[in-house]
Write a protein that binds this DNA or RNA. Structure first.
Lengths: 151, 151
DNA sequence: CCAAATTAGTTGTTACAACAACTATATCTC
DNA sequence: GAGATATAGTTGTTGTAACAACTAATTTGG
């Protein structure tokens, strides 16, 4: 891959990096029958049992349709179960299953070691700084997007 | 959006940031009938006329199927044309049309100003550093991935 | 110089993401 | 408390990405 002028855009660089990192991680967890995005959602379900889908969507940074579909997949695979909420008949609470818990427990250390492996090229200070800058960018872009939609 | 514990993973942060940035930019160029990914490909075609698809794919950081489909879309919209290569009958050369050139000329400054607007939250030094770190990460992950496939 | 390997491109499939439109329920306001 | 509004979730559509399987053409190596 030449990727001549790869740096023509920040978005390009961000996208390329994200995809490679995701693909690398995907290879590491394929054996558990989960994609990185399914893992991101399962992680949130494990974080707090009984969350409703809207809350999971918010925490996972995904929109409602995407969350619905990923949760459906996770349910079909037996990693989570849904139950109609008693307080609000519009919503469903999501619970992790035994199988889901076991799988999550197995994947979590793999995630950490994968990040460690990938971040090997830089010092801890650089890594922290990059995270901090990315978060700044993320927050700023979020507010720009929200501003836009208000109009 | 709470995004409680957003930082649980570098991949998560990278993905969320990339998507927001892309969406923001998408809103800015929608009027030209192009998505950010289509723009990324058109940019490469404009960069050098007569490239074959494989070369465009490499430069755009996309795989062959994705490039084929995006180029088909660009051709259907009248931004590029394909012509069978005379040197190699397997391949097609891609050329930008007048309409494609005009559109690219209009979008390029928008891309720059969008990046400038988004990067406003940090200093030029921070921006350069972030780019450099991302590139490091990108290169390292690329080599990890290539390593993996050799086996 | 010919069979084997490689390369350019396409097509099919699965998974996400964004957006819009929709149903059902809940909340707000007068 | 009834109508307007907002919210939770689903479904449909389009675009992109990854992977596998395929065709056709080219290159390589004995």
């Amino acid at each position: 891959m030449h990727q001549k002028g790869l740096d023509h855009s920040l978005g390009f660089l961000l996208g390329a990096t994200y995809r490679k990192l995701t693909n690398f991680f995907a290879g590491r967890i394929k054996e558990f029958g989960l994609t990185p995005e399914q893992w991101a959602v399962l992680f949130r379900v494990r974080e707090e049992d009984g969350l409703i889908q809207k809350e999971i969507a918010d925490r996972a940074g995904k929109d409602k349709p995407t969350t619905t579909r990923i949760l459906d997949t996770l349910e079909a695979k037996g990693f989570v179960t849904k139950r109609a909420s008693e307080h609000d008949r519009r919503s469903f609470q999501v619970f992790i299953t035994e199988q889901g818990k076991e799988t999550a427990d197995a994947i979590e250390p793999i995630e950490y070691s994968t990040i460690a492996e990938i971040a090997q090229v830089m010092s801890i200070e650089e890594y922290e700084l990059m995270n901090q800058l990315l978060r700044k960018l993320n927050d700023h872009t979020t507010s720009l997007l929200e501003h836009e939609k208000e109009q």
